[in-house]
Design a binder for these strands. Sequence first.
DNA 1: GAATTATACGAGTTATCGCTCGGTTATGGT
DNA 2: ACCATAACCGAGCGATAACTCGTATAATTC
Lengths: 208, 208
Amino acid sequence: MDQQSKPNALYSMRKTPTQERSKATINAILSAATRVLLTVGYDKASTNKIAELAGVGIGSLYEYFPGKEAIYAEVRRREDLRLFELTMNHSEPETLTELVRSHVAIYFEFVRSNLDLHAALINDVPQFAVGQQELPFYREYQPWATAFLETHRSELRYDDNIAQVSNFITRATRATIDNYVLHAPEQLNDPLIEQLLIDLLERFLLND
Amino acid sequence: MDQQSKPNALYSMRKTPTQERSKATINAILSAATRVLLTVGYDKASTNKIAELAGVGIGSLYEYFPGKEAIYAEVRRREDLRLFELTMNHSEPETLTELVRSHVAIYFEFVRSNLDLHAALINDVPQFAVGQQELPFYREYQPWATAFLETHRSELRYDDNIAQVSNFITRATRATIDNYVLHAPEQLNDPLIEQLLIDLLERFLLND
DNA sequence: GAATTATACGAGTTATCGCTCGGTTATGGT
DNA sequence: ACCATAACCGAGCGATAACTCGTATAATTC
């Protein structure tokens, strides 16, 4: 009864900060964690190292995070949130073609703008699938995209199972680009790849 | 001059075994490593634990592997090789449609047959992209697939950049299925998903 | 069957890690 | 001005990790 029994206590924060300086501390920790990840990798990153680089006492680190997993879960969550906002703040697309093109382009630009970090997040940082709350992007974007497809039903080849189709193309898009980030980052600058992906999605979706 | 200066000494084996019993030892280590991965995860897997479960002295383990990374690189390599053999030992496809269908089906079956292991390999085990030799599948399958597409050029929508197109669809296929393995494993049993992927690829490739 | 080489072993050394705990310092409310 | 509490601190403990090295045993060679 004494210990916290939240289901995913391992991956969420401990205290919720109220004052400004504590938020600054948390940011310093997350920023240092990012730098450590890029220099020594997830495996050799330690809470001590992160705290030291952040200029923060190790005790303070444990005030806010139960461990290294939670820190990197938060780094990932914030990046994911950033992607979501980039995607949604863009001008509302009118047509399906517009949707596909702009969202693919946004994700390409997103990973290109900080390639090393995203490669490290995809490759090194475990995703704690079990018990962790879903990432913002999948949780928020998915219903939105499904609704969009619904309103464009007439143009679609698949007018059934729209939710699953929407899910499928979201996954395929992100997964394919992530694969290039990891295994062939140099090709991300080749416009052909982006063109191929857009083609792939349009041909699949559109009732030509 | 004394120390080995192989570029990727970290991820390859030390001694190459000649006798039968040493091969058995290596197999025991790899098998134990797999079991440890599935029970405690990559992070908490240790060489000591692996050796103990394998019924092998810790000294013996270090005769063959420079560390935990190398062990899991080898586990991954062998699984990848198995996939390659499954794919290539299948009856030679005649048409593009046949190629797409059978290879997609083979990969679906491959991951379904040992879901936990593949999820762990994808999620937990770093891929040591830098300095590590490419995996067998990508190295061997890719040229073969490209050649196949070349001989079916007439049916293709893209008759240019065939190598890149071949590369692209291979990556997209694997990446998409892997994404389901990680984030929505239950849907792998839904025939709709497999159908969507086949559709996606055929529409993209074929000059209808 | 002796010499050589390959294989196996595991106690022990060294390093680092995660994390606590007792305590100090800063902030905001009243 | 005072107090409650939020934030910060870091020495140090216990656990566990990676990895070595001297030694013992099995296999192979000639």
